[in-house]
Simulated scan of single mutants.
Amino acid sequence: MFKTDHRLMGEKEANNSRKNVQMQEINKRPRINLPALRDFLSQFPGKFQRHLKSRFKRPTETEGANRDIFKLKDANFSLEKQMQAWKKNPVWDDDQPPSIEVVVPEGSLCQVNVKTKVGLPPDAVYNIVTDPDNRRVFKNIKEVLSRKVLLDEGSRQIVELEQAAIWRFLWWSGTISVHVLVDQNREDYSMKFKQVKAGFMKRFEGSWRVEPILLDEKLCHPFKPKTLSEYMSCTQCNGRIASKVTLQQLVEPAIVPPPPISWYLRGITARTVEVLINDLVEEAARIKGVSATDLVTTNLNLDQALSNEIQTLDIKERWALRRRNSRVKERKDRF
């Protein structure tokens, strides 16, 4: 007969008890989500590379253009100090007219894309564009009907805005209410606007963007400034900062009219945006104390009248050409 060893049985029971306690402690611990961990590890190299590229991106623009690494936000050189360089040398001989492109997306009347340069720092240009009372600058705004700040995060604001805009068509003129949400962000000098609800206009949206241009960067040659402090230092505070302004505006009425009316309306829309840009350039000249005639050589009222005549003539010619082509095509089809 075998005798039972009570000591061994007691040790086994104690070991089993300790194992049970350990298993309970392990079960209480939060478990690792293995699929999520695998996804994170697989995506981490790509995200890390993109982060490094964004942090150490090399400039690709030509000399004097904006660069991603160029930091315009510098407490040591406020807008007032940046303007002092323009006060010393207010005239900028930039003879390039605004670049205006009119495209026709499917279902829309037109989209107007404008690029121009303005002889003021981005902060000053952005102040003009986002000024609640900018109707004194832009002649196509008759009045501001309402303005409500929905979100204010300091450098970024979301504003609900309703304005009465002036319109002209042939011999008629009047005002139309433009009700938009505006998302403006001073960190990157951008502003996006979009119509609140459809009405006469099915879609009305677009964006402004302002970027810095280092006009006097050649004074730093061969040194390449990477910050505003470096630029102002190497130019002995005489370096001027201008702005590249980009405006994109999409217009889609509830009913897109057929030619030739649609051609005429596209011309009016493009002309309205052009006047808007001219108003901005004139205001920049006023702020610098330069006569507007030094920068804008055409009289806007006269130019408006001539432009309307040219637009009408152009439409008539295109319509006549289209009719002639249709008749020629009909003759060819007969034979």
Rank of each mutant, 00 (worst) to 15 (best):
N299H: 05
N127R: 13
F169M: 13
L41R: 08
P121I: 03
V328W: 09
P59H: 01
E160P: 03
D333P: 01
I213D: 07
V328P: 00
F48N: 07
K288T: 12
N278E: 10
T235K: 03
E217D: 04
L52E: 12
I69F: 05
P259G: 03
P35M: 05
E13T: 11
M232E: 07
S233E: 03
A305F: 08
V21K: 14
T60D: 09
K47I: 08
D39H: 09
D188F: 02
N15F: 07
G64Q: 12
F204A: 01
A198N: 02
V159F: 08
I310C: 01
I315G: 01
R331D: 09
N15L: 15
I69L: 10
I69E: 13
V125I: 10
P35N: 04
S262Q: 04
A14C: 05
S229V: 06
N20E: 15
K288D: 08
R331C: 07
I176H: 12
L219C: 06
F200E: 08
V328G: 07
F2W: 05
N325A: 12
S42N: 08
I241Y: 03
G107T: 10
D294A: 13
F56T: 10
Y189G: 04
R147M: 13
Q24H: 07
N76L: 05
T4R: 15
D216S: 10
N140A: 05
D216E: 11
L247P: 00
K332E: 15
H179V: 01
V178S: 09
P105M: 09
I241C: 02
D279Y: 04
K12D: 09
A254I: 02
A254F: 11
I166S: 02
D123P: 00
T60M: 07
H221C: 04
S190N: 12
K28D: 06
R286M: 12
H51N: 10
N299C: 03
S326D: 08
R147H: 12
E230S: 06
E217A: 11
W263S: 12
R266Q: 15
G107N: 10
Q304P: 00
V137N: 00
I315E: 02
R58K: 14
D303H: 13
R271K: 06
P257L: 11
A292D: 01
R322E: 13
L72F: 06
L109Q: 02
V104Q: 10
N66D: 09
N325F: 04
S146R: 14
G46P: 01
I32T: 14
F335Q: 05
D133L: 07
D314E: 08
E282N: 04
K71V: 14
G239A: 06
K12S: 07
V114C: 14
N278K: 11
E101G: 03
Q248L: 10
A254S: 14
S307H: 03
F70K: 01
I26A: 10
E283Q: 14
N127S: 14
K71M: 13
K202S: 13
V196A: 11
E143W: 00
P45Q: 06
Q22S: 12
V251Q: 10
A14S: 13
D303I: 00
L219E: 14
V21W: 03
D123E: 14
D314M: 04
V102N: 05
M9V: 11
F44P: 02
G289Y: 03
A284D: 00
V251W: 01
T227S: 15
D216M: 07
E101Y: 05
D94L: 07
